[in-house]
């Protein structure tokens, strides 16, 4: 097998092609951000509104209504709120990316139909824009840690690795979803329900450790379990994540990315006519 054949399989040329569009991706992401933040004075607040609301609701429900002032396994209700926000932030990045990518090729149809445009840039734009929202949320998370009096550790520096793992996995899924929704319009509705289910199948409102052993096997099959866990380790627990599970998750993420892009690329010529 010649060198070329390998590069074909691992998509080196395709990845280079995507990198060539980085200026386009950057300007589209900044367009999305500016448009979101310009329309309203509280733009920045609105992108955090949903995660904050979720945190508040679960804290009230589990901390005060059910728990009567304390949540099992947590030192205090304040810490439970911290733990919640720690997981909800990356989850919001993930779920918003998926939902928006189901629409993005239709919403941006004019770009696809009327000009020569590298279409893969659109799902990339969605995932990257939501990542920036996530990054904007991090200072707020750190502030909560300081306010609630829980110290952070050097393990915070593990964050870029978690970020990369989540980016690759989310990107793969978003390629799949955006490509398939063009052909099957009800994926969007199926997805909305699936994401609710997926939320509860990921350790966000409960800790991984509090789950019975038998159910942990099921949770292990969910890549988001390990990704959200790695954020918990970086911030809340302040220790090294379970590196074996996390490494496998990175590999699974790469596989999703590969398959997702492959399918997206395969269906590329159909978008012009179908969106």
């Amino acid at each position: 097998m010649r060198y070329n054949d390998y590069s074909e399989i691992i998509m080196i040329e395709k990845l280079k092609e995507i990198l060539r569009h980085r200026e386009l991706i950057l300007i589209l992401v900044s367009r999305e951000l500016k448009a979101r933040y310009r329309g309203t004075v509280l733009g920045f607040f609105w992108s955090l509104f949903n995660p904050l609301l979720l945190m508040l609701v679960y804290t009230v429900v589990f901390g005060f209504i059910i728990g009567g002032g304390r949540v099992a396994g947590f030192e205090s209700t304040k810490f439970y709120a911290l733990f919640l926000f720690n997981g909800i932030l990356p989850w919001t990045w993930f779920s918003s990316s998926l939902l928006e990518s189901a629409n993005v090729l239709m919403v941006q149809g004019a770009l696809i139909k009327k000009i020569k445009f590298p279409i893969e840039v659109l799902p990339i734009m969605v995932v990257t824009t939501n990542m920036v929202h996530f990054l904007f949320g991090l200072p707020v998370l750190v502030a909560f840690f300081l306010i609630f009096g829980k110290s952070l550790t050097w393990w915070v520096l593990f964050l870029p690795v978690s970020l990369l793992a989540q980016y690759i996995f989310t990107m793969g899924l978003c390629f799949l979803v955006s490509a398939l929704t063009v052909h099957f319009r009800d994926i969007k509705d199926i997805l909305a329900n699936l994401i609710t289910l997926w939320f509860f199948a990921t350790p966000i409102i409960y800790t991984y450790g509090s789950v019975p052993k038998a159910l942990q096997y099921v949770l292990n099959l969910n890549p988001m379990t390990h990704i959200v866990e790695s954020y918990h380790y970086a911030f809340y627990f302040g220790s090294l994540p379970h590196w074996k599970r996390f490494s496998v998750t990175i590999l699974v993420g790469l596989l999703f990315f590969y398959m997702g892009y492959l399918l997206f690329d395969k269906l590329r010529d159909t978008y012009v006519e179908e969106v």
């Binding site: 367009r31 310009r38 004019a110 009327k114 000009i115």
Partner: peptide
């Protein structure tokens, strides 16, 4: 190609941007 003018224009953003 002058097929669609102003593709990708975002209404909320200035002409300059």
């Amino acid at each position: 190609a002058l097929i669609e003018l102003g593709a990708g224009f975002h209404p909320e953003i200035s002409g300059r941007e």
